[in-house]
Design a protein around this nucleic acid. Structure first.
Lengths: 237, 237
DNA sequence: TAGTGGTCTAGACCACCCA
DNA sequence: GGGTGGTCTAGACCACTAC
């Protein structure tokens, strides 16, 4: 309104947005290379990249490290107040979920609200929507609740396994949701550049008796979801 | 873990983090200028700036446009399921809230789930915590519910005014929370660079009868809050 | 091996803030 | 008016991907 997009970066951003809106690029499509784009806009690669970084921050495009830039698919809707977890949530929105097990180890860990150096199991998984890696997750479990779990098939639903093999039902959960940045393993597995913005969700699950079951640390591509919450009136309902 | 911080940017980031952790910089303190820092690390200003941008993405530091870089104060905790709004929320966490009215106009607007070109009131405000501008908000009201509201003191709590002057009580609300980027007025009022990451919250408020009261579009500095949700088990299960 | 993005240099000018 | 961050240039080499 006040700024009439006088800078080059803003102008390039607008031009790319127009191309996207015109439908010449479709969801998931790959953009031309940075060098080709900087030639096309008669600017330096750094300036062109700044425009791409802005569009990335807006969630219009994303990159896979060293592979290129792509149009972002529509985001998932994530409602923490429902008990629908990943597979069910993705399927109910007409998308295709997949999960890859990365590692599963016993580990000393000082996270969660537990005595220091409590022995925990750490399961790390990568979750996909329509073939795109959107979430890297670490599950931290209390081993005494889940004997032999590390020998089972850990690429399927953990919630279902808790219920069917261990008689543990998910009840309450608490969520902490905040923007963060990608580093190390999370960045590599999400094929995201170091320092890219992420949306982090830390979730603590409780069973039907109010005991802590496990803690999930979810690293989401920042453009992959919208969190939707409906605060029902506390009345009769 | 796998990456041993081989890049300059990663090394500078680590060094700055160490300085911050050592307490040589305190919350709210201003960092040295980019030129001084790039001299100190014997690198170019662009490279140094990339390290600052990463720390910004992590929420460790923030900038005020053309004024410099500062240490980020602790974030607020934001619970959408409570009915505690801005002033109350900030005070309850031992911080100091403030609000500045930016504008209040009638406007044709096609947002919310309303017939197109519905006449609405648009109130724009800037909200502060401990003197730092953390949220730019647009309130869109249905004018027939709030006669003469544009003539009142709009820098105080709207919720209280709804209740005391119009007999309208807030009931249910829905929230849509997602990362976005700063542009135009939002960027300028938050003294944030164009394209900086934001956390956006779109909130629709309903009254005690289930009617839409208003719609808030909140643009938060991405490092200023954590969203906390407790999904209570739905009754007996 | 060719092409991609990731990183980096050593400068430059401009717009704005503050004393 | 001096210092700040915001923007921009015209190159360069490296690490990795895809073929």
């Amino acid at each position: 309104m006040t700024e009439k997009s006088t800078t080059q970066v803003a102008g390039i951003r607008q031009a790319l947005l127009a191309q996207i809106a015109s439908g010449s690029l479709v969801s998931g499509a790959k953009l031309p290379s940075e060098r080709d784009l900087s030639d096309a806009f008669a600017t330096s690669r750094i300036t062109l990249k700044q425009a791409l970084l802005r569009l990335e921050a807006e969630g219009c495009i994303y990159r896979e490290s060293r592979r290129g830039w792509f149009l972002t698919p529509p985001p998932l809707s994530y409602d923490p107040t429902t008990k629908s977890f990943f597979n069910q949530m993705v399927l109910s929105q007409g998308r295709q979920p997949a999960t890859r097990l990365l590692s599963a180890d016993p580990e000393l860990c000082m996270k969660m609200a537990l005595p220091p150096a409590t022995a925990l199991h750490r399961i790390r998984r990568l979750r996909f929507v329509d073939g795109r890696a959107v979430m890297f997750v670490e599950h931290l479990l209390k081993p005494d609740l889940f004997p032999d779990i590390l020998t089972r098939d850990l690429s399927s639903s953990l919630t279902t396994m808790y219920r069917e093999h261990y008689g543990i039902h998910s009840g309450r959960a608490t969520f902490d949701i905040f923007p963060a940045a990608a580093y190390g393993d999370a960045a590599r597995h999400l094929t995201v550049a170091e320092g890219s913005p992420l949306l982090m969700i830390i979730r603590i699950n409780y069973d039907q008796h109010g005991r802590v079951i496990d803690c999930d640390r979810e690293y989401w591509r920042h453009d992959a979801l919208r969190v939707s919450v409906d605060s029902h009136a506390p009345a009769i309902v």
